[in-house]
Design a protein around this nucleic acid. Structure first.
Lengths: 108, 108
DNA sequence: CGGTTATATAACCATGTAGTAATATAGAAA
DNA sequence: TTTCTATATTACTACATGGTTATATAACCG
């Protein structure tokens, strides 16, 4: 969780993650699509790999990087635990709106 | 989104966030509960406030900090967009397990 | 073998920031 | 007013890391 959040704190890493969401990619494609220097991409990929967000699989002379679901699932559960922050409010708003409607109906 | 992730990259800030999940708190309570130096807490609170994760409300000579739902909701939606990463796999696993069960049944 | 391509690593610089200590501000209370 | 309490800010150090350039490694192809 801690490493996951640290890895996602960097915008270029997030861009890489979002690119990988559509499937595994070799490094050169990431470099081309994001228009970043290759060593920088390799550096970020290493960070992501050590944080457990991606795994790498050699294929010929290129290396395919793909997302590792675990950390995202963990993050999803953690963020979910904050849902009551806004759902409670929406519930109250919903109840309020229904109350309005009820009053309208009874008035008619 | 970007500022939100940057704010959550720091463990002590996450601790503050999780403490505030149970409701608004004055600074001195945060300091006491997390056993951190007061200037450090104020610094992190400022960071969190400028990232939009908390709002502050003066009350007497203390200042009550509370979570701002917006960024968490946004983060929740973003993380949700990665759900297919593991749900697809679970679907496939589920289908596989059901297939096993079906074969067992027909064999009996 | 040599040459080319794909990727990683090393060395370096610049910047941001976590943590600390001291001080400032501001409100409450005497 | 002075004093006390709560919080913020400033100045500083130390360290991590993003970005760049150059080089290394390693697999492929001739």
């Amino acid at each position: 969780m801690e490493g996951t959040l640290a890895a996602l704190a960097e915008p270029n890493r997030v861009r890489i993650i979002e690119l990988l969401r559509s499937g595994p990619r070799p490094v050169n494609e990431i470099v081309a699509e994001l228009a970043l220097p290759q060593p920088l991409v390799s550096k970020h990929l290493r960070f992501l790999r050590e944080a457990g967000l991606v795994r790498v699989r050699p294929q010929g002379q290129q290396r395919l990087y793909e997302l590792e679901p675990g950390p995202f699932q963990e993050l999803d559960r953690w963020v979910s635990s904050f849902r009551r922050l806004w759902e409670d409010r929406l519930d109250r708003l919903d109840a309020y709106l229904q109350d309005i409607q009820r009053k309208k109906r009874t008035r008619k």
